[in-house]
Design a protein around this nucleic acid. Sequence first.
DNA 1: AGCGATTGAGTTGTGCACAACTGAATTGTG
DNA 2: CACAATTCAGTTGTGCACAACTCAATCGCT
Lengths: 157, 157
Amino acid sequence: MTEQPAAALRDQDFLRLDGQICFALGAANRAFGGLYRVVLKDLGLTYPQYLVMLVLWENGTTPVKELGRRLRLDSGTLSPLLKRLEAAGLIRRERSAQDERSVHAVLTDEGTALRERAVEVPRRIAAATGFELTEIRDLQVRLARLTAALDAAVPQD
Amino acid sequence: MTEQPAAALRDQDFLRLDGQICFALGAANRAFGGLYRVVLKDLGLTYPQYLVMLVLWENGTTPVKELGRRLRLDSGTLSPLLKRLEAAGLIRRERSAQDERSVHAVLTDEGTALRERAVEVPRRIAAATGFELTEIRDLQVRLARLTAALDAAVPQD
DNA sequence: AGCGATTGAGTTGTGCACAACTGAATTGTG
DNA sequence: CACAATTCAGTTGTGCACAACTCAATCGCT
């Protein structure tokens, strides 16, 4: 009923094949989620919260805008997440004096101290993958390339 | 990023490195999400709903349990999702006569007809990745291996 | 200086993911 | 046969992701 692809693959093959890369991606992503859930449990953090803390531990005080840029999250996700981190006593939110629109996330002493207990997290995760570092790197590079291609294909921003 | 011998990595390097594979994974996953959102928009489906439809198109009537097994989703996710598909007129839910605990998802005529319009989806997605099929396959295999390793590391089930 | 456009954070609403739970149907074991 | 354990779908509650919006602060242009 429509044009046939040049390759030997037919529509129904594509429909079966299709889910697979995204599905494999989603499955891996959720498997990581499950592992992080366990590992981060006694730090009292979720995985996205942990990512925010990573940025803060590395960078110190950071504007919400910058957190969003680094983590690819928008204010609709970050605002409530930061509120929860603040409620947990790990950060404070301070309006910038220079630009009253901007809000900075600032580590509290408690938030800073949590880093000590977080250092073991990456090792536990890495151990669970059973992958060599080089292989992880390779996967990263491919995924980054894939992401860039996909982003380019969606005309947003 | 800068290359570094694996042996020389310290805690803080780990803390920086750490997010990266999962982060790359999450980024790729969300990039796919964004693309699917656009492509599936005029089918009126979300990506998880599309996955359910794929299974139904391939398999016909399928118990909720089996959908969960295939898609790695639990009833907490599937129940409301299937309700929405039913509300959209694409499926019906029918309690099994053999086992009254079990519910089968059944395609309506409308749901079956939607397949015609869905066949172009995989091509559009594949085109957006710009990846060769072999490369996609390779990535799939690696991700599946990663997922299996991670699942094995989380003592659930 | 005046004022429209843009920027930044936040809110609302929808949908997914998952834990913990409920309740009904079925199965297994004594 | 009885009844405890299990299975299955569904519900509730929390948190993330994102679209669409609001509102105030700032910027840019004239």
